[in-house]
Amino acid sequence: MIYPIVAYGDPVLKARAKDIPADLSADELQKLIADMYDTMYYAHGVGLAAPQIGKSIRLFVIDSAPMTEDDEDDDAPAEAGVKRAFINPVMVKESGEEWPFEEGCLSIPGIRERVFRQPDIIIRYEDENRQVREEGFSGMTARVIQHEYDHLEGVLFTDKISAFKKQIIKSKLARIAKGDAKADYRMRFAGQRGR
Rank of each mutant, 00 (worst) to 15 (best):
Arg130Trp: 05
Gly81Pro: 13
Gly96His: 01
Gly136Pro: 01
Asp127Trp: 04
Ile62Asp: 01
Asp71Thr: 06
Asp75Met: 14
Ala76Phe: 06
Asp38Trp: 02
Lys93Leu: 11
Ile53Val: 14
Lys83Gly: 07
Lys55Asn: 13
Lys83Thr: 10
Asp38Phe: 02
Asp27Ile: 14
Ile87Phe: 09
Gly45Met: 07
Lys93Cys: 11
Trp99Asp: 15
Gly45Asp: 00
Glu102Tyr: 05
Gln52Tyr: 07
Glu97Arg: 02
Glu126Cys: 10
Arg133Leu: 11
Ser107Arg: 00
Phe101Trp: 03
Asp35Lys: 00
Glu135Pro: 04
Ile57Leu: 15
Phe116His: 06
Gly54Phe: 09
Phe101Glu: 09
Leu24Lys: 14
Gly47Gln: 01
Phe137Cys: 01
Ala65Tyr: 00
Asp38Ala: 09
Leu106Cys: 10
Glu97Asn: 06
Glu28Ser: 15
Tyr42Asp: 14
Thr68Trp: 00
Thr39Ile: 12
Lys31Asp: 14
Phe137Ala: 03
Glu126Asn: 08
Tyr125Ser: 03
Leu106Gln: 04
Gln52Arg: 05
Lys31Glu: 08
Ala22Val: 15
Ile123Phe: 00
Ala26Ile: 14
Glu94Trp: 02
Ser107Cys: 07
Gly81Arg: 05
Leu29Ser: 00
Glu113Lys: 11
Lys83Met: 09
Gly81Trp: 00
Val115Met: 08
Ala49Lys: 01
Asp35Leu: 05
Ile122Thr: 13
Tyr125Asp: 06
Ile33Lys: 05
Tyr41Asn: 02
Ser25Gln: 15
Cys105Gln: 07
Phe86Ala: 09
Ala26Arg: 14
Glu28Ala: 15
Phe137Val: 06
Asp70Trp: 02
Glu79Ile: 10
Phe101Asp: 07
Pro89Gln: 02
Glu79Trp: 01
Gln118Glu: 11
Gln52Trp: 02
Asp120Trp: 03
Gly47Thr: 04
Asp127Tyr: 04
Lys55Ile: 15
Met40Ser: 04
Pro119Val: 06
Lys31Val: 13
Asp75Trp: 06
Lys55Cys: 14
Val92Gly: 09
Glu128Thr: 10
Ser56Asn: 15
Pro51Leu: 11
Ala80Asn: 11
Gln30Gly: 11
Glu69Pro: 09
Gln52Ala: 11
Gly45Cys: 08
Asn129Trp: 03
Glu113Cys: 02
Ser138Met: 07
Gly47Ile: 02
Val132Asn: 09
Tyr42Ile: 10
Glu94Tyr: 02
Ala50Asn: 04
Phe60Lys: 05
Asp74Met: 13
Phe60Cys: 06
Arg117Thr: 05
Arg124Lys: 07
Glu97Ile: 04
Leu24Trp: 12
Ala22His: 13
Ala80Val: 12
Pro100Arg: 12
Arg114Glu: 12
Ala85Asn: 00
Leu29Phe: 05
Pro100Met: 09
Lys93Phe: 03
Val132Arg: 12
Val90Ala: 13
Gln30Trp: 07
Val92Met: 14
Gly81Glu: 10
Ala76Leu: 13
Ile33Asn: 01
Tyr41Phe: 08
Asn88Pro: 15
Gln52Pro: 11
Trp99Met: 15
Trp99Gly: 15
Asn129Thr: 08
Arg84Val: 12
